[in-house]
């Protein structure tokens, strides 16, 4: 099962969505069938959407052990955060 039907990660962009979001995972023998299975399982076949499938083995994840140094920016250095910029009028989707 695991070698013939490897695990795939599914990313879906809804019709009006701006980015692909991780929707879940599934087993499939290859990418073509992974796409079709993803359509059945995660999109209910709505029109106008985009699906990415990626073999789980191709994903490198950050290690939970490195969580602190990896994900905790120095909160006392606000100049790191883009909060001092004024958003120009008319800019959408920011």
């Amino acid at each position: 099962m695991s070698s013939d039907w490897p695990l795939w990660e599914v990313f879906v962009r809804s019709r009006r969505g701006l980015s692909h979001t991780h929707a879940g995972s599934l087993h499939a023998p290859d990418a073509e069938l992974a796409l079709r299975n993803a359509r059945d399982l995660y999109t209910r076949r709505s029109e106008g959407i985009s699906i990415w499938v990626v073999p789980s083995s191709a994903v490198t994840a950050s290690s939970p052990d490195e969580k602190d140094p990896f994900f905790e920016p120095a909160a006392d250095k606000p100049y790191r955060h883009p909060t001092f910029y004024e958003v120009p009028e008319g800019v959408k989707n920011l």
């Binding site: 099962m1 087993h27 499939a28 059945d40 399982l41």
Partner: peptide, 11 residues
């Protein structure tokens, strides 16, 4: 044979 095909055939 697999859960995914279960869903596909039912669909």
């Amino acid at each position: 044979p697999v859960l995914e095909e279960e869903v596909a055939l039912a669909n």
